[in-house]
Design a protein around this nucleic acid. Structure first.
Lengths: 328, 328
DNA sequence: GTAATCTATGAAACGCCTTCCATGTCAAAC
DNA sequence: GTTTGACATGGAAGGCGTTTCATAGATTAC
């Protein structure tokens, strides 16, 4: 299918070659900045491109090279600030390396993630960054042969690159910190019940109590806590308890903010009656003075992109810092 | 460049044709679900594809078709909830139509937006949705010939599709509403000083006061207000005023939330001392009971994608509804 | 002075799929 | 009994760069 061009037809490399009186090879060399082109011919080619208003057919380049300079990014929901920040970092870095991003919003549906993996297989994207995995490792492992896959969770033991946080340690630290402040009845709010990160956190919690030979209350565990609004039902449930927790580890500042907001409106003193530790250090945590673990999400996004471009396998662990503010 | 394949080489359509004993045309027909293929051959082809673990080279398809099923989306910052919600809508709808998104974060740099326009020209994307424009109309107009361009602002008079809000009317309505509540000293907080949407709002403001032969105070106008944190400096400035505004039109719920939060912490009564009207109806507005104009951002994103796919030119105007809560 | 390099250049192969056009069969229509 | 149209199938012409290989003159090396 020929392309429209002002006054005729979109020029292609052949036309340019003819116009400049050289071979297509030479034009290609000029196009790609290869050496071994005489100054005279280079100029003739540039002139011809100018005259014909030439633009490379990028799809032909992709076909020929077998690469697209496109990198896939899978996020469950782009509206969640956590993922927004990661994508921001990825996008910032992508520009520098002349990559573009293909955004795949998975809604945590395996099928959509599979779609993204398939794009990698079909070489529509050069690499894939999975910000929160839905597919099983078995499936992901099948696709590593087609290109770099980067995950934001502990990927050691798999042929992927990964950049992940020390959730076990952070949770342990948070628990110790709260214990130091006299809290024994500590609850937590997680996002997905059985995500890799959640598992890590739950083991940290279990171990913390087991190591001390103490029992813990299953009512203090909340799942599917992801957004502001979730603060409300969490607190409603806590209010109904005979023996409510005195502290809450909340793995998203959004949820922490929702909880805190509810408390303020309902006269529940924070940290007096309820201490709150958030995660992420999002703007809202700063605004509401929430004590939280800082996660350098933008930076993580950047590094993920670099890993994607680099292609060599690596595993980076990120240590989180606790920022003490006013909710503990 | 041949592709690796288990035990040899990635099969291509020719291999399949040979394996199935048919022509490549027939294979292509099966691949694309065209009619006029006998059941026997169709099955033979499917069998062959199975055997050879065939996958189409998507880049070849793109080259051949001159389309990529990719749609570009330009947003200044993906972390801003406003754009996050729009992109969410776009992504939701894109999946249904089997389109993927290429995300271009412009940071309001014209060059990056130009990059996106260039992708359209090079047919790397089939259409482009510009959520907040940076380039001049002259430039955009040049690129409409290469494919559908959709803008989220009033695009009437240009060869683009557009979906936009009645900002003039909404602002007028908000002002009337506040006046009805006894407010004369009304200020506003805008994002970019000279964006199309801001201009609309400023004219509404000016007209409102001019029509009444009243003067207005230039100190009451705040620009570059986009995120939570901006609430603070806005309020700091207001606190320093001898004659501060009694009401504020804030064109982002994020900023409104920041302002409200500051007020609560500093004993400024809302709406007693300061009334606040937000825009967007984001989750945070619901949580903080902010009176706000609802903008159906996700739905707008959806429609934008539909316009992109559809390709026919259209201009949709969206009317905003005021949601009365507790800040006026 | 001759071998080894470097510089320049182009033909042709390669990446791979879609689609137009031509051809042929078979059954329904008149 | 012939015409018409639906159904089937394949050849070949696109769509367009990149890259390998071959060739040859110009230098440099020893």
């Amino acid at each position: 299918m020929q392309q429209a061009w002002e006054g005729g037809i979109m020029a292609n490399i052949k036309d340019i070659a003819k116009l400049a009186g050289v071979s297509v090879t030479t034009v290609s060399r000029v196009l790609n900045g290869h050496p071994y082109v005489s100054k005279a011919k280079r100029e003739a080619v540039l002139q011809a491109m100018e005259t014909a208003d030439y633009e490379r057919n990028i799809n032909a380049v992709h076909l020929s090279r077998g690469r697209t300079n496109l990198i896939g990014v899978v996020v469950p929901y782009i509206t969640r600030p956590y993922f927004g920040m990661v994508v921001e970092g990825i996008a910032d870095e992508a520009i520098k390396d002349n990559y573009k991003l293909v955004l795949i919003q998975s809604n945590y549906e395996a099928e959509r993630e599979l779609d993204a993996l398939m794009m990698l297989k079909l070489k529509q994207i050069d690499a894939l960054i999975i910000c929160s995995r839905t597919c099983s490792w078995e499936i992901v492992d099948e696709y590593v042969q087609y290109g770099p896959i980067i995950v934001l969770e502990d990927g050691r033991g798999h042929q992927v690159s990964s950049i992940f946080m020390d959730h076990y340690q952070s949770f342990t630290r948070a628990l110790t910190y709260l214990r130091g402040k006299g809290h024994y009845k500590i609850g937590y709010c997680l996002a997905r019940q059985s995500s890799p990160n959640s598992n890590l956190r739950e083991s940290a919690y279990r171990d913390f109590y087991m190591n001390r030979n103490e029992a813990y209350n299953h009512d203090y565990m909340f799942y599917d806590c992801v957004q502001l609004e979730d603060g409300e039902w969490i607190m409603q449930r806590i209010l109904k308890m005979d023996d409510p927790p005195t502290a809450l580890l909340v793995t998203s500042d959004q949820v922490a903010a929702g909880i805190l907001s509810f408390c303020r409106e309902n006269g529940i003193e924070v940290p007096g009656q309820l201490a709150i530790v958030g995660f992420d250090n999002q703007p809202i945590a700063r605004m509401m003075h929430i004590t939280t673990f800082e996660i350098p999400l933008v930076e993580i996004g950047r590094r993920a992109l670099l890993q994607a471009v680099d292609g060599s396998q690596a595993h980076e662990e990120i240590h989180l810092n606790l920022i003490e503010r006013q909710t503990v």
